[in-house]
Amino acid sequence: MGFFKKIIEGLRKTKQAIGFKLNELFKRGIFDDEFYEELEFILLGADVGSETTENIIEELRERMRRDNVSDTAKAREYLKQILLDILGEEQFEAECPAVVMVSGVNGVGKTTTIGKLANIFVKQKKSVLIAAADTFRAAAGEQLEVWAKRANVRIIKHEEGSDPAAVVFDAVSSAKSRGTDIVLVDTAGRLHNKKNLMEELKKINRVIDREFPEAQRYNLIVLDATTGQNAVSQVDIFNEAIDIDGIVLTKLDGTAKGGVVLTIKDTMDIPVYFVGVGEGIDDLLPFDANSYVEGIL
């Protein structure tokens, strides 16, 4: 199943669940206050956030006024275009050798994402090494080992409670000597307001920079689509600590839509690179703004 189909499939239930009205709304053909209120409901309900929602609606009013639009089908296109303008189009492409570090708060799906990412790169005929730098959570290493086996890639793992920077050091050394294309670094979940844990992450980041300067660096943050406005704070603080390149938006197969990524792109210019749509190894797909917007609306 392709991205489009999967998202539509996933969101079909959402539409039923929250009493989706947008199509009817556009069919009504009247752009009155009720129209905009419903629209607001849809955007807020998708976790877009109140400020961004207000901006989007303002922009839609503006553009429709400017072009004197009265055709309802066109209004939908206008709205879609506004959302697409915000999201932009950026694809993730790794230049090798690369180190991709995956971070985020607890329970967003980092370890699963690493497994799926490994699978994607293997399919691109790249050699991959996983560094199990989540040495904190109970059995995180074992969990990752299962994924490494599924994706058929090597893994470097120390025992629980050891220094994550040391794991990364070993992984980088191994990758350098073997000429591995991509090192995927799994990190422990950490809440962004815990200063010492963010310092630890910075340290891991520094170790990679220092030990593997010739590698391309990519720092991805994993966001749970179920998360609300706190995602803004998450990305903001992780970005401040280690410079985030892009987002992996997970759990899009539920009824949540993760609309907060619009706010994040709008305010911090950090794009979504991948979306997670299930628990299988192939359930990580490159982000396609077009289908995503279709899914929200």
Binding site: G45, N230, A231, K257
Partner: peptide
């Protein structure tokens, strides 16, 4: 940290299982 979807989740679980209570996690975040 759950967003708008919390209502759908809670409602579905409650309808299916008639939950007796809720535990909120990760409140040590911001």
């Amino acid at each position: 940290m759950t967003g708008q979807d919390a209502v759908n989740v809670a409602k579905s679980f409650d309808e299916a299982l008639d939950i007796t209570g809720v535990i909120i996690t990760k409140l040590d975040g911001d």
